[in-house]
Amino acid sequence: MIAADAPEPGSVLYQIEDARARARRSFQVKFALTWVALVGGLVVALYVTGNIDTEFISTWAPFIVAGAWVTVYISLISIVLATLLALIGAMGRMSRNPYLNGVASLYVSLVRGTPLIVQVFFIYLALPQVGVVLPAIPSGIIALSFNYGAYMTEIFRAGIQAVPRGQREAAQSLGMPERQLMWRIVLPQAFRIVIPAIGNDFVSMLKDSSLVSFLAVEELLYRAQLVGRQNFRSLEALIIAATIYWILTIAFSFAQQNLEQRMARGDR
């Protein structure tokens, strides 16, 4: 920085910036130390008191970790389908056609008013009674997409309504037909608004996909419970699963942060 034997008027600004940078760095170091101390302490405490079987962990971790692919695979397909459902749902919710609006509103109300686990069981265990027999993985994907689609419908509706009115009016004054106006002007801007929320939903879907374990889909939680019970080592097995869920959500949160920063560039 600037040598400040005789303080120049401008150098004070550098000193302030310098002090701020130091404070930021010290905050980051203390923050990181807190995490290391807490997580490290937890690990040590488990080792000392929990009678942790490291051999079990090294033997079974690969089997449990293999379930992460199923978790990510189910979540990815479900978030794409949920986005499509949400788009249709949002159109319905804003429609002036009473039938369309009624259907879309009922969908949102019904799905948001019942627990996800009930929907999962309903699709897998109850639908066969009326002749619809779906295998486990499709059942799980349908339940997750259906559920998240309803929540995201509201997000999309808010996003579309958040696009400034002037945009719509400008397009109308150019004589754009309603449909083109929606696809070319409103939706692209709405998407930018809702992408952070979709990212958020994806992170929660990664965790909610664990409910599919009840259908004997071999994802993370299912595998952890299976080998945990079988070997009388639920603590170790669940710690492995929890750690992987955590790592997955941290990774996707980072990706989401980057995406948001990129999207924000257009807002200057």
Binding site: W60, F63, L226
Partner: peptide
């Protein structure tokens, strides 16, 4: 139900 050793259980390779 593969939680019933020694009747039915899984090995680490699945």
């Amino acid at each position: 139900d593969s939680d019933y050793a020694p009747q039915s259980f899984r090995t680490p390779d699945g």
